[in-house]
Design a protein around this nucleic acid. Structure first.
Length: 583
RNA sequence: CGGGGCGUGGCGCAGCUUGGUAGCGCGCUUGCUUUGGGAGCAAGAAGUCGCAGGUUCAAAUCCUGUCGCCCCGACCA
């Protein structure tokens, strides 16, 4: 491959685009890899297209190596497939919907579980056919409420999704492990730093699920990591370690006057000054009311969540815990309709009588004593003992996770970081197989319900993540396998320098090296250097003022190292770099 | 959906308070000079000032409405 900048469809920008915030977005636009067309929708220019293909090629290679077979489904799909699994309605506004000329409902596929399942059902029917794993690299569509961060989170994006079909749980486990290994190899090759995190399976049901999160400051997912045992989990999947249950006598429950204390802060201050206590927010029990709806039903249930007063309820964690139920904030109007719930002074003592379900943080174990609301305006109670004065209906992971919280595996302190999801592996189980009645006929003549796994890699997102993790103040710094070229040859000013650059470029191309050569006439050296730094090709060869002494300059984009080399050795030196020490 | 900001040549922005010739930088075209760090000089091309209505002799500027976009939050791969 040989790209000449004199004719390459490329325009680099000196200024950051006004609408870009994150580094990958700014750089991919400035370096002329992508251009925005509509919110969350981007065009890929020649260099960007090459980079995306390179990422796709790595993903494809690793999928093929693990024995998966590539297929391709349409992006434009009729409603009926998503009707059968209920997702036409469940997916909500995120689904891009459209009508054909006859008024028939169509959608742009956000994922393709239904199609894969249906295809396997159509072709395979014997246990001898299984297991099988299929994948595709497709453009997906999600009408996100708020697309952001350029390529990182678009409404149109390229994704590799694969599905495994197995006869039993052990087979599913094997398929899952194979994908896990393949993903590790894939992301290693892509040069992405990542953390494999336990994840919640959410509304999709199923059991084991892990996310590959690439840590970056601009990430949207929060994950918990333990640096002593290596445990890592999406914040939604973090499990709180409950203290041992407490036995022993507590003084009787006592109701105190605490006027004007609807918040934990004011309550703590009042207790300590007016009632001779020495407590912190952690000694109080905060009770948060939510209403929960289940998809497909219009009724909502009132639910009270009890967490230690020093912690906020993390709505994402609560949602994950309650899935498929969807919690919503209890509003003024709701309180008005439920006079038993006194806003700011709710205590669990009366919930049983009100017939309201009460779930508590795992730290609220039997025998613990709390300061909490007395269900009357201006009054709180102390010595409210779990198991004596109230009995929760269960526990719930809803409280926020904080750095320093205990690791559920080894007890050390965990840290919190942000990351971007680049891969997700997921033991789906039989939800889709059940919906499609996907069976194989067993050796005994009886049908076996197939069990599935689903696995995704964000291909276009990976491009942005690599840019996010591999750049400096000068521009992009691509890992070689992803880079649009192996070497960027800069021929500065003088005509003979450009000629020599082209000559070396041709020789390298003949060796199978992918070359980008800056042969633009009458462009000043400064501009060419800046562009080479912005574009981020890993190796840069400058054919310039040294030419008359038979020298060229070899630069490493990542380290910034420069060295003068005899120009006659340039081809060999570069070929060696590209082919690697082993080859 | 809540909060904040912005719509002016391809890109980045000024002008709006106080109405009167549409301006700057980058990029682009032509010529000459220049050629190791986003060159210089000269001459050019390119804008329904988001849209609609109103006020006015006159609107990018004032008023009303509307559409769109970006950022933060809520929500999602």
């Amino acid at each position: 491959m040989l790209l000449r900048m004199s004719s390459l469809f490329l325009r680099t920008l000196r200024d950051d685009p006004a609408d870009a915030e994150v580094p990958s977005h700014k750089l991919l636009v400035r370096a002329g890899y992508v251009r925005r067309v509509a919110p969350g929708i981007y065009s890929w220019l020649p260099l960007g297209k090459i980079v995306m293909e390179n990422v796709a090629a790595v993903v494809r290679d690793e999928m093929n190596k693990m024995g998966a077979q590539e297929v391709l489904f349409p992006a434009l799909l009729p409603r009926e497939y998503y009707e059968a699994t209920g997702r036409w309605t469940e997916y909500g506004d995120t689904l891009f919907r459209l009508k054909d000329r006859k008024g028939g409902d169509y959608l742009l596929g956000p994922t393709h579980e239904e199609l894969f399942t249906d295809m396997v059902k159509g072709e395979y029917s014997s246990y001898k056919d299984f297991p099988v794993t299929l994948y595709q690299i497709q453009t997906k569509y999600r009408d996100e409420a708020r697309p952001r961060a350029g390529i990182l989170r678009g409404r149109e994006f390229v994704m590799k999704d694969s599905y495994s079909f197995d006869l039993d749980d052990d087979g599913l486990k094997r398929s899952y492990e194979q994908h896990r290994e393949a993903y590790i190899k894939t992301f290693d090759r892509l040069g992405i730093r990542y953390k494999i995190c336990f994840a919640t399976s959410g509304a999709m049901g199923g059991s084991a699920s892990e996310e590959f999160l690439a840590p970056t400051p601009t990430g949207e997912d929060t994950f918990v990591a333990c640096h002593s045992c290596g445990y890592a989990a999406n914040a939604e999947a973090y499990t709180t370690t409950p203290p041992a249950s407490v036995t022993g006598e507590h003084p009787a429950l006592e109701v105190l006057d605490t006027p004007g204390t609807p918040t934990i802060e004011s309550l703590v201050a009042c207790m300590n000054s007016d009632h001779g206590m020495a407590i912190t927010g952690a000694d109080t029990l905060k009770n948060v009311v939510v209403k929960v709806t289940t998809p497909g039903s219009t009724k909502s249930e009132i639910l009270v969540i009890g967490v230690p007063g020093d912690r906020e309820v993390d709505f994402k964690r609560l949602e994950a815990s309650l899935a498929p139920g969807e919690p919503a904030i209890f509003e003024e109007a709701d309180f008005a309709k439920n006079p038993g719930l006194v806003r700011g002074y709710i205590g669990p003592q009366v919930l049983k009588d009100l017939g309201i379900r009460y779930l508590v943080d795992p730290r609220v174990v039997s025998g613990t004593s709390w300061v909490t609301g007395a269900n009357e305006p201006g009054k709180h109670a102390r010595n409210v003992v779990a198991g004596r004065d109230f009995t929760p209906d269960g526990t719930v992971e809803a409280a926020e996770v904080r750095p320093g919280d205990p690791c559920p595996r080894c007890g050390s302190e965990v840290s919190l970081d942000r990351g971007i999801e680049i891969g997700h592996i997921f033991q789906l189980g039989r939800k889709y197989a059940d919906a499609a009645k996907l069976d194989a006929l067993g050796p005994d003549g009886k049908p076996i319900r197939i069990t599935m796994g689903s696995y995704g890699v964000g291909v276009s997102r990976a491009v942005a993540v690599i840019a996010e993790q591999w750049h400096d103040e000068l521009g992009l710094v691509w890992p070689r396998e992803i880079s649009p070229a192996d070497v960027h040859i800069v021929g500065t000013g003088k005509e003979n320098q450009v000629e020599k650059a082209l000559e070396i470029a041709a020789a390298l191309e003949a060796r199978g090296v992918r070359v980008l050569v800056d042969d633009r006439p009458s462009v000043s050296p400064g501009v060419k250097f800046k562009d080479s730094e912005l574009l981020g090709v890993p190796t840069v060869l400058v054919v310039g003022r040294g030419l008359s002494q038979g020298l060229a300059e070899l630069r490493d984009r990542a380290s910034g190292e420069k060295q003068e080399i005899p120009i006659d050795e340039a081809v060999e030196r570069i070929a060696a770099l590209v082919e690697g020490p082993a080859a």
